[in-house]
Amino acid sequence: MTVTAVNDRLKNLFVEVLELPEDVDVESLKYRDISQWDSLGHMSLVAAIEDEFGVQLDTEQVIGMSSFKVALDMLKDMGVND
């Protein structure tokens, strides 16, 4: 799996979990930018990311996941990149 594949899987996850319209620019999305990504949506995202990528996020990572890009970098840092 390539980094791009991880990027696409993460994008799909955001769209699915936050029920985003197709025209939303997911890659530039930040926490609380849109009403769907509120604190409850955030916890749903965390659970979905943990399931999809087989990882477990620390509390600090949950709190620090402030944008799509941060989430992607976090997954790369955790070794989800091949």
Binding site: M43, S44, V46, A47, E50, D51, T59
Partner: peptide, 10 residues
Amino acid sequence: VQAAGRVMMR
């Protein structure tokens, strides 16, 4: 509660 809740959410 927080730790268990996060597992249960899945």
